[in-house]
Design a protein around this nucleic acid. Structure first.
Lengths: 166, 166, 166, 166
DNA sequence: TTTT
DNA sequence: TTTT
């Protein structure tokens, strides 16, 4: 049950291969960074400016597995999730906050690359010869924050309490 | 022009009165925090858990003025904006990051409170007797990060470069 | 599994009380019409124009029950669903099409009225005997199409086939 | 100014090449049909079912031109617009209704095909003389309604009246 | 760190 | 720090 609405919609490109881990209960977790950008014309100079925004996205359960298997650095993804800020401590013990887009069973994801030429397309791309698919990421994503502990958060659809209408 | 999609949709309640400032060019900026929450039933204990998420939202230009005038602590708002993470330095000179939902001319906002009894409702709520409306916030919002400098970002609709189709 | 994205987000007011029916399998179906409106200034005359859009929304299962219980003519609702056009035959046997917003388990709904004073609020408002508040209906909603048969469409979360990643 | 929210988000493929016309004021209008589909497993038979939804989308002004220039049958598009139902009369004088997704200056569009190999990419793909790629059309799109008259509706950003805050 |  |  949600009181309020908390929804994020992104279309962007992966900055690196996904980082997939498994939780104690066997559920997969995949972390990616997604770039979106916008450009505008500076009024003073008349020059076109560009700003790229990097989003941390976390997938759970089956979507984490799909992302780990099919998405790669540069892949274009549609993502629908929710905003979540988690607290952690840096080396000096100070509180730090990281905001992520969480994509669980209520969210969704679409791979927008259909390049039948590169072994990534629908249906045929899974068993790629060079082993890039479904395995360890080629260049591990440097997570600037410690590995987060997502346990204790609801991740499956039936974890949600739907008894109270509002 | 946007390459990709970066969109956030929220419905939540203000944690405090808005904090309104004015930029050198005369444009208003309003900062609020918005709470959304979800509840779920813990599988082990069977108990209902609740998690509240706090979102930092920044409004520009006319929407900043409307928010400053009509929204108050507790108000329910619909907000549509984009995610933006800005970098700042803490006292020790370390880089810190804060993620906000930016609502500029491309975004939108709706006040979802229509309580004609409290001087906040449509049309008649502006000239509230107790002066809470439109003036200084009752209890100033404690911004844990230094006042951000939003200059240099596009804020008006015509700042966007729409010449390049994609 | 969805190939593509089909999503509708509305905030509007009910044109009439919900119409609730039950399907052979016992699942509830609720039909409402929701009004959204926008205004703009006519360039020629300088006058403000207003246009109201009426949306047909269909809720299934638990959300249908909640809507039937708590929403009334004039209620403000947030709705998230998908577009669906169904074909039907008019009296003369001609094909006709009606487009609706379908809100099933993948969609969501929020009642945005919190008027604890009028018997509509959470928990206590259910048994409002008749005095349906929310302002007199402007024009009673005439269902111009015959009662639709929604059987054969997936309505529950587990009806969806999530085996194929894309 | 909008009272309420009326928003549609689609990702789908064009069923045919866009149909571009020009209004008396010189503004372009582009009509397309966009297919989204979902699949689910039938509970009784265990068989995977698929349902394709066809959406009528209308673009105005600059986006209409971009669509007309770069989108082709089979192209994948992201579309953000609003729902609008217009009334028209069939040959026998009977009222008929058609619901469309209107994409004007407040909406947005993204071409999701980036196939630099097929003459459709940014900048170079415009003059594809005939060989419209994107896969053979399954069934040529039949415009079942007469050419609509969109005059009298606000189409540009500054047509909107932003004076009233809510 | 992506993409065009 | 909000709301129910």
């Amino acid at each position: 049950m949600a009181r309020g609405v908390n929804k994020v919609t992104l279309i962007g490109n992966l900055g690196a291969d996904p980082e997939v881990r498994y939780m104690p209960n066997g559920n997969a977790v995949a972390n990616i960074t997604l770039a979106t950008s916008e450009s505008w014309k500076d009024k003073q100079t008349g020059q076109v400016q560009e700003r790229t925004e990097w989003h941390r996205v976390v997938f759970f359960a089956r979507l984490a597995e799909v992302v780990g298997q099919y998405a790669r650095k540069g892949s274009k993804l549609y993502v629908e999730g929710k905003l979540q800020t988690r607290k952690w401590q840096d080396q000096s013990g100070q509180d730090r906050y990281t905001t992520e887009i969480v994509v669980d069973m209520r969210g969704s994801m679409q791979l927008l690359d259909n390049r039948p030429d590169n072994g990534q397309g629908a249906g045929q791309g899974v068993s790629a010869p060079n082993g890039r698919q479904g395995g360890a990421p080629q260049q591990p994503y440097q997570q600037p924050t410690p590995t987060p502990d997502y346990s204790g958060y609801p991740q499956n659809f039936d974890d949600f309490d739907d008894d109270i209408p509002f």
